[in-house]
Structure formats: C-alpha cells, structure tokens
C-alpha cells in the first residue's frame, strides 16, 4: 500500500515537471524595448508590431515602453532594464566614447525629422547664406544646436551674424514672429503647427539640413554587444518583427490600421487628417523610396555625424564605427 502511494506521488511529480518543462519550452521570450520618446508617429512601427501581434508571431513577448526626456535607452540596456532601445546617433556615439557596449542594429530614420519651421512669406532660404541676420531657434545642448552650428559653419556664417534664440516647449515666440526659424520634428509636431498656422492664414515651409548636405543621423535601434553575441537569434527575431511592423505601418494599404493604432496610443492627436499627414511624412523620412529596405544603416551619414560631433568637441575621442554599427540581415517577416 505504502509502495503504491509512493509510486503515485512520484508519478505526480514527474507529470508536474513535464508540464512545467513543456510550458517553459512554449513560453515566448520576454524582452523590453525602450523607445526614445513618447508614443507618437515616430514610433508607429513598434506600436503596429505590438498591436498586430507581429512580436508574438516571432515568439516574443515585447513590452514597448515609452521614452521621454528623462529616459535613456542606452543606460537602461547597461543596467539591464531593457533589452532593446531606440537612441539617436549622438547618444550612441557619446555612450561609445565613454565605454558603453551599445551597438546599432538598424537605423530607423534615413532623413532626420529635426527641421526648422518658417514662414515663406517672411523668410526665403535658397542657400545657407540666407540664414544671415535671422533669429533662429535652437535648444541649447540639443541636436538642433549641433546641426545649426554645423550649417552656419558650412555656410561661412559666424554666430554673431545670426541671433540664436533659446527655445522651449511653447511656440509663442514663433507665433508672435519673434523667432523666424523654429526647430520642430517635421513628422510629429510639424503637421500640427502648420495646420494651426494655416487656420490663421499663414503658410509654412521647412528648412531641412539634409538639403544642404548635413545628414545628422536620428533614431536607431540599439542593443548591448553582449546580447548580440550571446543571443543573435533573439536579436534577429526581434528586429525582423519590429521592421515588419514599420513596413506594414508605412504601407499606404494599411494606412487606416496605422491611424487606428496611433489613435489608440496617442489619443491627444485625435484629428485624422493630421495623423494621415504625420504618417505620410514619416514614410518619406523612414522609407524615402518605395523599395527601400527599412532599417538600412547609412554608414556615410554616421561618419558625418561623428565628424560633426568631434568638430564641435562633443566627443572626447574618435569612435570605432565598425564596432558600433552592426546591421542585422533580417530574413523573415519583411
């Protein structure tokens, strides 16, 4: 009798172990993806992949966490709070120069969305020299300051020949015509401000540094070098699902779905025409031509970005770009 009970207990244990083993084998890999900014059109690909179960299909449970000014994906990678993140090129280069083991596995924006809004009725910019004498908004310490100083240098304009205005969160100085060029994210804030000004009967235009040869890289997908070395298959699966999310979200055929996704995460931008415009502009910045492979790393632009930062003494030393830029061949899900 005792022997029979022991056998039953042993069988129950074995069954439990088998169930646990089976369920752990089936469980999706859990990863955290820290965005650079709040949920908006600039992260539509990740949101689309999340809501349309693309991560799940890749065997992943992904927590897409919103970013913000106080968040730094690269620090979170090192501290183990995130497995993947979105970071701008200047963040990546600064981090590498200080010994951070961060690597770039894909570049999301091919054209930097950081551009300057202006009124074409007041300002005409055909060449860089046209910036002379203008009141130009910059965020001191931000990317836009670096880019603008590069443009001024390229145009042979000294800082004394322009009036650099310290910008903050509200656009009042631009609305009141105190500032002539105001830095905005072309795809996110641009359509909203242009729409407001259009309602007031004012036309707007954008000064794009890339048109004048300054290609300062914006957001990329990053991870830790160790994650890439130890879990290349996980990195591949994550990136394939993420880029598939971008591909599908930016596909004009899926515009309604993409807008629905944005409305779900970004209810403050409720106007459908503005969301459609944001999506259209984002498409041009992420996938400049229809066949363009989303996520392609533009090595030349990275070299230029590094050169600019070294020139402005924002980097203490040169960074080995080969060690930083690790494009991943995405085989599926595209």
């Amino acid at each position: 009798m005792k022997n029979g009970t022991e056998k039953r207990v042993l069988a129950a244990w074995l069954l439990l172990v088998a169930i646990l083993w089976r369920s752990s084998a089936l469980a999706a890999d859990k990863v955290t993806y820290r965005l650079k900014w709040l949920y908006n059109v600039s992260v539509v690909g990740a949101l689309y992949a999340q809501t349309h179960h693309l991560f799940e299909r890749a065997g992943l449970t992904v927590e897409v966490k919103s970013g913000g000014p106080e968040r730094d994906a690269i620090r979170e990678l090192e501290l183990g709070y995130a497995d993947f993140g979105a970071a701008s090129a200047d963040q990546v280069l600064r981090a590498r120069a200080k010994g951070s083991p961060v690597v770039v596995i894909a570049q999301l924006f091919q054209v930097n969305p950081l551009q300057w809004l202006y009124r074409p009725a007041e300002v005409r910019i055909g060449k860089l020299a046209d910036l002379k004498g203008k009141v130009i908004g910059v965020t001191y310490g931000g990317n836009d300051e670096t880019i603008m100083r590069t443009l001024l240098g390229k145009g042979g304009i000294t800082t004394g020949e322009v009036d650099l205005f310290s910008v903050r969160f509200d656009y009042t100085p631009f609305y009141r015509h105190r500032v002539q060029l105001w830095p905005v994210y072309r795809n996110a804030q641009g359509p909203m401000i242009s729409d407001q000004l259009a309602k007031a009967g004012e036309a707007t235009a954008y000064f794009n540094p890339a048109d004048f040869g300054v290609r300062f890289v914006a957001n990329s997908v990053v991870t830790e070098a160790r994650t890439l070395e130890e879990k290349p298959e996980l990195v591949q699966r994550f990136l394939a699902a993420l880029l598939a999310g971008w591909q599908q979200a930016l596909d004009p055929k899926n515009e309604e779905e993409a807008i629905k996704t944005l409305q779900q995460f970004d209810p403050d931008t409720s106007s459908r025409p503005i969301l459609a415009e944001q999506l259209r502009i984002t498409r041009e910045l992420v996938q400049p031509t229809p066949g363009f492979a989303i996520g392609t790393i533009d090595h030349q632009a990275w070299e230029q970005t590094e050169k600019i930062m070294l020139g402005q003494k924002q980097l203490s030393r040169q960074v080995d770009l080969k060690a930083v830029l690790k494009p991943i061949a995405v085989l599926s899900g595209r």
Binding site: E78, L79, R94
Partner: peptide
C-alpha cells in the same frame, strides 16, 4: 559593483 561604463556613471577621474 555592476561594472557600468562611464556613460552610465562617470569615473572619479572623469
């Protein structure tokens, strides 16, 4: 303790 880079927490010299 966590072997963090100077980017996360700068070294005393930095």
């Amino acid at each position: 303790g966590l072997r963090l880079s100077d980017y996360v927490i700068p070294a005393p010299a930095a």
